[in-house]
Amino acid sequence: MTADPRWVALVRGADRPGTLTALTSVFSTRGVSFDSLATGAVDGGSGSIAVTFHASLRRQQHLVRTVERLTAVQSVVVRPASDPRVRAAGVVQMPPGVPFAPPPTVAVRWSGDAAAGQPVIVEGSLADIGAVVLRAREQGALATATVVLSA
């Protein structure tokens, strides 16, 4: 694991071939790997891309300036992953008959009954969703997923 801070970049880009490739190339050629990358819905000819990554403040700023210069990119918002404005959704699937609830220390909305075979779906800050997913894995989750929301 790196000591560099974790960042979330929310990129709005043109819905055309090569946009995602151009974005990933900026990170790749600068030696920065993604923790996660997800594309969102396309609306009005543009779509959203959420990227989480580790980098120093200086490298993060350089990446953002370079991404902003891409012709296919319309906007970039970057925040520390710990920023409570960075929202996420998660899904937890536990083994049959195993109950699960998010830890009481996190502020998330959730639904589902894992003991009844239902997935538990949670929404909250990325940091809180991370805590929920970690707890689920520690308790034997069969599958987990986290998506950073662009709103």
Rank of each mutant, 00 (worst) to 15 (best):
W7S: 11
L10H: 00
V11L: 02
A14N: 03
D15F: 13
T19Y: 01
T19D: 02
T19P: 05
L20K: 09
L23A: 02
V26L: 05
V26G: 07
V26C: 10
F27P: 08
F27C: 06
S33D: 14
D35F: 08
D35C: 06
S36M: 06
S36P: 02
S36C: 05
L37V: 15
L37S: 04
T39Y: 02
T39E: 14
V42Y: 01
V42I: 15
D43C: 00
G44H: 04
G44Q: 01
G44Y: 01
S48Q: 00
I49S: 07
A50R: 05
A50K: 03
F53L: 13
A55E: 03
S56P: 06
L57Q: 13
R58D: 13
R59W: 03
R59G: 00
L63G: 11
L63T: 10
V64Q: 10
R65P: 01
R65F: 01
R69W: 00
T71M: 06
T71N: 01
S75Q: 13
V76M: 01
V77K: 12
V77R: 14
V78T: 15
V78Q: 02
V78M: 02
R79E: 13
P80E: 14
P80I: 00
A81D: 12
A81V: 07
A81T: 09
D83G: 07
P84N: 11
R85W: 01
R85N: 09
V86I: 14
V86G: 06
V86P: 01
V86R: 09
R87Y: 05
A88H: 06
A88T: 08
A89R: 02
P95R: 08
P95H: 08
P95K: 06
V98K: 11
V98G: 04
F100E: 02
F100W: 10
F100P: 04
A101M: 05
P103Q: 10
A107S: 12
V108D: 07
R109F: 05
R109S: 15
W110K: 09
S111C: 09
G112I: 09
G112N: 09
G112K: 07
G112M: 06
D113T: 14
D113E: 14
G117W: 14
G117L: 13
V120L: 13
V120Q: 07
I121H: 14
E123G: 08
G124K: 10
G124Q: 12
G124D: 10
S125E: 09
L126D: 04
L126F: 15
A127C: 07
G130Q: 08
A131K: 13
V133Q: 07
L134D: 12
R135K: 13
R137Q: 15
G140W: 15
G140R: 10
A141Y: 11
L142Q: 14
A143I: 03
A143V: 01
A145W: 02
A145K: 03
T146Y: 03
V147K: 01
V147L: 11
V147R: 07
V148S: 08
S150A: 15
S150F: 05
